[in-house]
Amino acid sequence: MRYIIRFHDKLSDSQQDILNKLSLDIIYQSKFLPLIGVITDEPEEIRGLDFVKSIREPAVGSFMEGEFYTTITFEPPLHKSLLVKNQMFGWGDIRVAIIDSGVNSDVSVTESKDFTGTGNFDVINHGTRIASIIKHFAKGCNLYSAKIGNNEPDELNMLKAIEWAVEKGVNIINISSGFKRNCNSDCELCQLISQISKFGVAVVVAAGNEHNMEDTIYCPGRVDDAVTVGAIDRNMKLASYSSIGKPGSGKPNILAPGNGYINDSRFEGTSFAAPVISGILAAILYKSGNVYKAIEYIYRT
């Protein structure tokens, strides 16, 4: 079985020696948090160690299935004229990571990484669609695809993928999936996003599709440092399916169209609102050169 282990603090040499003597294989070690991922059949011997804060199985989330085509229209309509007019069309070395179900050859990516062991092919065309929407707004950006699941995103794979994306020097990470839980921003995933945001990486996360119910933002969209994206419908109102946070939480941070068509295939969900913001953010970032200013700009406008 696979487990996520969180420690109270950075491991000392003696504590590392204790771990090395246990029946486990370390498959992930965070560079930002006192956190590892392991394979073991004896979790109880780990749980009993005084320097272990928690040990648990990784959560499994959900993707929204869909097909991929090339012509995109949104409800309400979105136009690129402002971006083109201001020469903010996403050219240059702006790097966007898509942590999702993979990206097929329909969309060009700079580099792909499979964390599932099943190959980079996007079985459900979810990540491929996300990539297409980002490219719609930031045609010249460099995409990095991290596959973390076929039909369902895996939390441990997501942790690995986020750190891989940071190693690749990405400016923006798009996460159009999540985990339905009340983590209060203190889970390992939210804490990792808080850490990498300090290094100038914008993490754009879909809010979730829980039908306007309060306090239903998916993890990791709950964390303050994430740019959490809800959806609007064709009438410019909050989409009936879009999740919202606790009163006063400010979540979602921003709204974007989550409905539209790729050729004749309809899409709907906050999964597809998030890459609208990621794409526009990439275009603005090319012009501004500062991720914090770019985020501030989209919040203002």
Rank of each mutant, 00 (worst) to 15 (best):
L19A: 07
Y297S: 14
P257K: 01
E167G: 02
V103G: 08
I298Y: 06
Y297N: 13
L143W: 06
G208L: 02
L22G: 06
Y292G: 00
N290G: 04
S54H: 04
S240K: 10
R222G: 06
D50M: 00
G149P: 08
E42C: 00
I172L: 05
V170G: 07
I36K: 03
N86K: 07
S185Y: 01
A282F: 04
L143N: 11
E188Q: 09
V203W: 10
G48N: 15
A165H: 08
Q15Y: 05
S176Q: 11
N104A: 06
D93T: 10
V276I: 15
S242W: 02
V107Q: 02
G169C: 03
G258S: 05
S265K: 13
N157S: 13
P247S: 10
G279E: 03
I172D: 10
S194K: 14
A165W: 06
L281N: 07
S12R: 12
D106E: 15
K147M: 07
G208K: 03
K21L: 10
F115N: 12
S177C: 14
F121H: 13
K198Y: 03
P77E: 08
S145M: 01
I254F: 08
A274M: 07
G48T: 03
P43K: 01
M213Y: 08
Y28C: 03
W164Q: 08
S243Q: 03
G269T: 11
H79V: 10
R95E: 02
V170E: 07
S23M: 04
K21M: 08
A207E: 11
I295T: 12
D93I: 01
Y299F: 14
I148N: 09
K80Y: 01
T73A: 10
G279W: 02
T228S: 12
I55T: 11
S271P: 05
I99K: 00
A202F: 10
K287C: 00
I173P: 09
K139T: 13
V109Q: 02
A256M: 00
S30H: 08
A273T: 08
E167Q: 13
V229L: 00
Q15N: 13
I162E: 05
P34G: 07
Y299V: 07
L156C: 05
E152L: 04
I46H: 06
T40Q: 03
D41T: 13
N209F: 07
Y241C: 03
L22E: 12
I4V: 15
S30G: 05
S194D: 15
L238C: 06
S265R: 13
Y261A: 00
A59L: 15
I217A: 05
S112F: 01
P77Y: 03
K113S: 12
L33M: 12
I277E: 02
T71D: 15
K139E: 15
V227R: 05
P252D: 09
R266I: 01
T71E: 14
E65Q: 10
A226H: 02
H79A: 01
K293Y: 08
G169N: 06
L192H: 11
L33P: 06
Q195V: 10
Y218I: 12
I46A: 04
F272K: 01
F267L: 01
N151E: 14
G66W: 03
F68A: 11
T301P: 00
R56T: 09
A131G: 07
I130S: 10
K10P: 00
M236Q: 13
S101H: 06
D154Q: 12
K293D: 15
M158F: 00
A294C: 00
S185C: 09
M64S: 13
D17Q: 13
G119A: 07
R266L: 01
I18T: 15
